[in-house]
């Protein structure tokens, strides 16, 4: 003990000790009820209510949602397709294909109509009815 009576002021201490508070029985009843309700909670539910468990559940949900999206749209993730191609619909793809084929055919075939040489035999198209 390092108690030094010279440091204390008995008169002041006596005054200070006349004021105090008592333990509140209602508070203990409240605490007891809280602890007993906590005890009644099933262990799994109690664990699930912990912040870490809630965070883990949310993370799991996000991963599961991501996996579901990936499985639901397999063509979108093919590595050989470009982003632009993945954005086209089958109808658009068919139209583009047709257009390319038509263009190639057009280049390979001779021109159906050649320009008439300018001269006497040329028929002029005046726009008038014959």
């Amino acid at each position: 003990m390092t108690f030094d009576p010279g440091d204390d002021d008995p008169r002041l201490t006596r005054l200070l000790q006349t004021v105090r508070a008592d333990a509140d029985p209602a508070l203990w009843t409240r605490v007891r009820a809280r602890l007993e309700s906590r005890r009644r909670l099933p262990a799994l539910l109690a664990w699930a209510m912990r912040p870490a468990a809630l965070a883990a559940s949310v993370a799991l949900l996000v991963v599961a949602a991501g996996a579901t999206l990936m499985l639901g749209a397999p063509t979108a993730m093919l590595p050989s397709t470009s982003v632009a191609a993945s954005l086209t619909t089958p109808e658009e793809e068919a139209t583009l294909g047709d257009a390319l084929v038509a263009e190639r055919d057009a280049e390979a075939a001779p021109p159906a109509v050649t320009a008439a040489p300018a001269g006497n035999g040329a028929v002029r198209d005046s726009g008038e009815r014959r």
Binding site: R20, A21, D22, A23, D24, W28, V31, R32
Partner: peptide, 16 residues
């Protein structure tokens, strides 16, 4: 739980 009650009975006044 009774031990906690005993603790409060002993120290509740000082805590409060």
């Amino acid at each position: 739980l009774d031990a906690l009650g005993e603790l409060y009975r002993e120290l509740g006044g000082a805590m409060t």
